[in-house]
């Protein structure tokens, strides 16, 4: 009799395990399935619109053919601007936290705040820049858009810089100090070099993050139907144009939005995959 009870308990446990295994497999299939569904839809809808004209012509008025040249250019400019502003600040702050004040109070506070900035809603950043730049200047501008994106770049770069510098073995710093190298040179010539791959990864991840950002640009750089290189005026950007075109009732605008979406996604995926590819080589060196 006890044998029977034991046997039935055992089969019950095995059944639970089987159920959990099937659920786990199902969950993984679901997760991978979404990725395939989304990428599949993007390729299916966006690939047909991909042509040379997309990269050589301006955004069209509704009902006529055109391309995405001005938003693509605008996105590149805004992203470059954001990286130029955000990267130095991020690297310096990360350097302080990893090299000078690894255990001091300032660093732990900054680390905490930085982690919150890392996941803070990007639309709030847009409001912030609107308040401090757009409202005082009186008009929307490319500069404001670049600074808004820079605010998103900084936390990513701070985080990766600190993490990567922390991984640099102390013996390297001690060796440098023992031959009389000042601290600043130890950091810039030895530690940066040892952590270079990881730090580049951080910048790539930051670029991947901001190149698809729409919310902070909506009311900073706004949008521009025409070719413009003036950063003091509204600048078109790919995400904002996708937003505008996708919600429009015009079929050809919607088609362009899909093509733009495909371009952004491919760019972002390429960036994040190359960022990942860099990490192992960084650990070896």
């Amino acid at each position: 009799m006890p044998d029977k009870i034991l046997a039935s308990r055992y089969s019950g446990r095995r059944r639970n395990n089987a159920i959990a295994t099937v659920l786990a497999l199902g969950a993984t299939a679901l997760g991978l399935g979404w990725l395939v569904l989304i990428l599949g839809a993007l390729l299916w809808k966006g690939f047909s619109g991909l042509s040379v004209a997309v990269f050589t012509e301006m955004t069209p008025p509704p009902g006529s053919a055109g391309g995405l040249l001005n938003p693509i250019f605008g996105s590149l400019v805004l992203t470059t601007l954001a990286v130029l502003i955000g990267t130095p600040i991020g690297i310096l702050a990360g350097t302080y936290m990893a090299e000078y004040g690894r255990y001091d109070r300032l660093s732990s506070v900054v680390r905490f705040i930085n982690d919150i900035l890392l996941s803070a809603p990007s639309i709030v950043v847009g409001l912030f820049i609107y308040e401090i730049m757009v409202a005082p200047m009186g008009h929307f501008s490319g500069w404001a858009g670049g600074v808004a994106l820079a605010v998103l770049v900084i936390p990513v770069v701070v985080r990766t810089t600190e993490d990567m510098l922390t991984l640099v073995p102390n013996s390297l710093r001690e060796a440098a100090t023992s031959i009389g190298l000042p601290r600043s040179l130890t950091i810039t010539r030895i530690c940066y070099r040892a952590a270079r791959a990881g730090m580049v990864t951080g910048v790539l991840l930051a670029v991947a993050r901001i190149s698809g950002e729409t919310a902070p640009l909506l009311f900073t750089s706004l949008n521009n139907q025409f070719w413009s290189t003036n950063l003091n005026a509204p600048v078109a950007s790919l995400p904002v144009v996708i937003f505008q075109f996708a919600l429009s009732p015009y079929k050809d605008w919607q088609a362009l939005a899909w093509t733009g979406a495909l371009i952004i996604t491919l760019a972002v995926l390429a960036l994040s995959i190359s960022a990942r590819a860099l990490i192992p080589s960084g650990r070896q060196s």
Binding site: L92, L117, E131
Partner: peptide, 25 residues
């Protein structure tokens, strides 16, 4: 000294960023 203060200023800048967001909002 300059480099050290520069990195420190950047770290404090991150703090100011957050306070700036709060104050402006």
């Amino acid at each position: 000294i300059i480099f050290r203060q520069l990195t420190r200023a950047a770290a404090i800048g991150v703090l100011l960023l957050l306070s700036g967001v709060i104050v402006s909002l």
